[in-house]
């Protein structure tokens, strides 16, 4: 692959960095990244990965844009209300960078679709808002041996990590089972400060770019915990769990079954 004159200008600020250069930019352009969710986390991730020239972005989301999304889901606009989030996101990405091929999946991740869709990608980003999807995507990523860039937010708190067994744990090592329904406020009940998914999404986008480049140290075996009220970033060491049901020594989850990924239905916004 040779960079075009337009690409040399577009990516000039990347190319001059020793850790990136022309070769690194070509790696970004060749990379295929799947975003599960085009909401609070998916918005900033998609915008920055598009700007960075990640060549193929798959975006999976069955939801449509609603008014209460716009406080944080910065890829969508007021004029997009009612449209599929994947269509709105695709338009925004194309406006930023026509180099990026956007593949849209106007559906929610499920045991029926996730393995087939994920298998076409190099990395997968968790930009979802519920436990069922997060466990499903984690397990699928472990089964397909794909790096899984995790992020989650609630109120003023956020977390991020890179899960890529056997280099460090998976999400299920950390939290073996989803909390019982009702134990944790779900979806819209808890609320989130609008900028928070921006910040955690930026961490996910950063780790994605570093992973593709092979640059620096990733959040492998480390959980980044952010407390916006205290403005405190903490990195916690996390190790693999040999008893983990999906990536442990004797895994019991060797295929995806719908019974393992049930959740309470979310009231529509």
């Amino acid at each position: 692959m040779t960079l075009t004159e337009e690409q040399i200008h577009r990516y000039a600020r990347h190319i001059v960095i020793p850790e990136i250069g022309g070769k690194g930019q070509e790696k970004l352009l060749a990379a295929k990244v799947l975003l599960v969710g085009a909401g609070g986390l998916g918005s900033p991730v998609a915008l920055y990965l598009a700007g960075a020239g990640v060549g193929t972005l798959g975006i999976m989301d069955g939801d449509t844009v609603s008014l209460s999304n716009l406080q944080r889901q910065i890829i969508h606009t007021t004029a997009d209300i009612g449209r599929l989030k994947v269509d709105s996101a695709k338009d925004a990405i194309n406006h930023i960078n026509p180099d990026v091929q956007v593949i849209t999946y106007p559906e929610y991740a499920s045991v029926e679709n996730i393995l087939q869709i994920m298998s076409a990608y190099d990395l997968v980003l968790d930009c979802c808002d519920n436990f069922a999807t997060r466990y499903l995507v984690n397990d699928a990523a472990v089964l397909l041996k794909k790096p899984f860039i995790y992020g989650s937010v609630m109120r003023f708190d956020g977390q991020a990590a890179v899960f890529y067994p056997p280099q460090g744990p998976c999400y299920r090592c950390l939290f073996p089972e989803a909390p019982p329904p009702g134990a944790v406020p779900t979806c819209q009940e808890a609320g989130v400060m609008g900028v928070l998914p921006g910040l955690i999404g930026m961490v996910q986008a950063t780790e994605t770019i570093k992973f593709i480049l092979g640059a620096g140290d990733l959040l492998l075996g480390k959980l980044l915990v952010y407390d916006a009220l205290a403005m405190d970033f903490m990195k916690i060491q996390i190790g693999p769990n040999p008893e983990c049901a999906v990536c442990g020594n004797q895994p019991t989850i060797t295929a995806l079954h719908a019974d393992n990924y049930q959740q309470l239905p979310c009231p529509s916004e």
């Binding site: 960079l3 040399i8 190319i15 001059v16 022309g22």
Partner: peptide, 14 residues
Amino acid sequence: CPITFVKTKLALEE
């Protein structure tokens, strides 16, 4: 600038 250096760097990489 900075395309002058960018192109020089790209040529050297090859």
